[in-house]
Design a binder for these strands. Structure first.
Lengths: 192, 192
DNA sequence: CGAAGAATCTTGACACTGACTAGATTACTC
DNA sequence: GAGTAATCTAGTCAGTGTCAAGATTCTTCG
């Protein structure tokens, strides 16, 4: 809390994660260097390891935080609009708004997928997502409502992924949420 | 062509790429080590660099090869069935059948995105994809047919990504193509 | 046929990284 | 205030990508 340059940093974990998010958002998770993060925080090269164990530990923390933010974003959209289209838009909005988290969350090989905290956070996000997609799934006349929910998830996830990786063609709305709304409407409103 | 252990390897580039695909399929692109590939090929640690320049060069070659395979897979499905649903299924089939290529192709930060060969291969794949999705886009009554094509692409791309990363829930068909067919039907056949 | 030149591969080196160990310093608790 | 836990430093090791210089083989062409 104070600004004195002491032996103890004061809030190293938060500082490290924050710096990690910057690096990941700029250059991806593979560009992440624990030593670089330590330098940015002004601590020794081995200090981060004390809090996170290793690289995977740090990325686990990032993923947990990300799933928490996603849970909140989806629940908020659900609460405010009650419209599954807007929940899907919120999914894309989260991805674009928190690109670093999103770049880690769905790559289990980067973190400790068996971490209890992570599993719990992931389950909460899954629940939030399911509650958003359930009305859409129910509106489909098909026999398998799970397929409809997966279709919705796949669509918004794919769109977010393609957007973030810069693989979508030009000519789309500059606002990713607006672009997502148009694309998701093709699925969500029966026919475009 | 011969089997004598000579100074020249004979077909190093192909050997290196082949080994790289194995490693990537097993542990992802970040686990790739040029020195390890060199060891597997029985050459010195700097030999791969001579052919590919650096890591990004090798992954560029992988991506180019991947886009070529994708182009062929989509065109083949289009030719054989003429059904855009099956083109979408073929997209997922390619991703699952060539996980290493797929893991690289849509991550431009891993390779040289400005490589002319890559740009050309990517454009060909885009054309093949567009020809597959065009009938679906035309079948939609909405004003913007591009949105329909993007929705189709997003859906199959998202499904493939989630499948490969192990993020899909249990209870799906073991065959990814069959699972993809069910999910894609939600979009492609109006209502499930 | 043979020599020049190009292509291929080796060797050596440098800075960098993640991870581990042991130790120093500070905060906390009783 | 002493003992203990938490936090951070310092040193080390094997491994990596990349570069430069040299050795070897293939190819081409006089």
């Amino acid at each position: 809390m104070s600004t004195h340059a002491s032996y103890h940093h004061g809030n190293l974990p938060r500082t490290i994660i924050s710096a990690a998010l910057e690096v990941i958002a700029e250059s991806g998770p593979s560009a992440l260097s624990l030593r670089d993060l330590a330098r940015r925080a002004g601590v020794s090269h081995a200090a981060p390891a004390h809090h996170f164990g290793d690289r995977a530990g740090l990325l686990t923390a990032v993923a947990v935080q990300g799933f928490g933010l996603l849970t909140d974003a989806l629940a908020e959209a659900q609460r405010q609009t009650g419209d599954f289209l807007e929940v899907g838009v919120a999914y894309v909005g989260f991805a674009v708004g928190h690109p670093a988290h999103f770049a880690v969350m769905f790559r289990p090989e980067l973190y400790r997928a068996d971490d209890p905290e992570l599993i719990a956070a992931k389950a909460r996000a899954g629940g939030s997502l399911y509650r958003g997609a359930a009305p859409f799934a129910a509106s489909q006349s098909g026999p398998d409502s799970q397929e409809a929910a997966l279709a919705a998830w796949s669509l918004v996830h794919g769109f977010a992924t393609l957007w973030l990786s810069g693989n979508l063609p030009a000519g789309l709305p500059a606002d990713p949420r607006q672009a997502a709304r148009g694309v998701a409407s093709v699925l969500f409103s029966g026919r475009g």
